[in-house]
Design a protein around this nucleic acid. Structure first.
Lengths: 203, 203
DNA sequence: ATCTACTGACTGACATTCAGTCAATAATAA
DNA sequence: TTATTATTGACTGAATGTCAGTCAGTAGAT
């Protein structure tokens, strides 16, 4: 075989890309290391030159995905040109797209289970990364006299996980999803943040 | 080998017990089907007489664990001899013990990852199962004029996921865990439930 | 001439299958 | 009633195929 050497960073990225693509479509278990290397025409050994194990690429893929989403969400939260209301709207919308694959693909039960675990794992990680910026936002609102929050970090954590749960929880167990409008959400949050709903909907 | 036939229900339970024990101590990947059958001295084939796959036992184990916890939590929520405050206390305490194994065991990084996914998966499932009873409790409080909640089911979902997140989120990303006292929690919930903190702490 | 990215055949472990065995129970004949 | 045979279903364990991970060696760049 003719050999093609590449800049290690590119190569590693290439492997990561292939792995991500496959994990997201077929799932972790159904993706073999040889599937990954075949897709980019390199030998099996090369995979292990760049990654210690299949688990390790998986972790890298999860981190990349989590970073992508949390960066998007953080950008929305910090965008002062947006009202509070539309930030909520956009954030919830973005959250809906975490692992959309899991819904679009026909999967046997066994895979559903695996995707679910991955999904929740990701949701938790993203949630964690988003808490800081949310806490900042709450602190700002408090300074401006627009919210009464005792402990912004705590409230932010609670809020983030609460919303993530609403968005990602199983449809049957959680509230009716159709009820999850921005208005309903704001009504509930107004209590938590100590603002009247009217005010909250207009900042 | 001398054969010992058992009542199928017992046998299945026996396999489930062994699998649970092993999954919780070594993790899913590190537990082989032959480990499971060796532990109860039966042939490998018998495993597949009772379960379609390793994934299937795993799912059964998760369901069993989730049921155990959600039953305990639901009992606390419904125990009208307890104050609201002590119900919160006991529920949070119970939640802390979901998969305590993951903390007590020395695990290489690879396993941490696996346990984390399982952990979150479980947390979400338990959370989902607990929402109904919490919603009932909120509805009762509202009827008695003790809380102002627009949509009990929605608020319950939000509350449950919020608290689960606080308890199970990664220590570094979430608020300082030491701040998570019952009082702090009640202060925050008072807003969400539309009750003054003083009242909430005494019902 | 070294180094480093790269190859691909190989190994061992593991999930899953399957053809067959054994023991108990039911059905039938004595 | 007792002896004989058929049937069922729990159980066995060797065989199969797949796959993660290894390693001894090779090509090309510097």
């Amino acid at each position: 075989m003719t050999r093609i050497s590449k800049n290690p960073e590119e190569r590693k990225e290439e492997i990561l890309d292939a792995a991500m693509e496959l994990f997201l479509t077929r799932g972790y278990e159904k993706t073999s290391v040889s599937d990954i290397v075949r897709r980019i025409n390199v030998a099996q050994g090369l995979f292990y030159y760049y990654f210690k194990s299949k688990e390790e690429v998986f972790r890298a893929v999860m981190e990349r995905l989590a970073r992508q989403f949390s960066e998007r969400i953080i950008a929305i939260i910090r965008d002062d040109s947006l009202t509070f209301r539309s930030r909520i709207e956009k954030v919830v919308d973005t959250m809906h797209h975490v692992l959309p694959v899991s819904e679009s693909i026909l999967m046997d039960e066994i895979h559903q289970e695996e995707f679910r675990a991955i999904h929740y794992r990701l949701a938790f990680q993203i949630a964690g990364e988003v808490i800081g910026p949310i806490a900042e936002l709450l602190a700002t609102l408090r300074e401006r006299g627009l919210a009464r929050v005792k402990d912004p970090k705590l409230t932010a954590s609670f809020l983030v996980f609460g919303v993530f749960g609403l968005v990602h929880g199983e449809d049957d167990l959680v509230h009716d999803k159709k009820n999850l409008t921005t208005d309903t959400l704001l009504d509930m949050l107004s209590g938590l943040l100590g603002v009247s709903p009217e005010v909250l909907k207009n900042i």
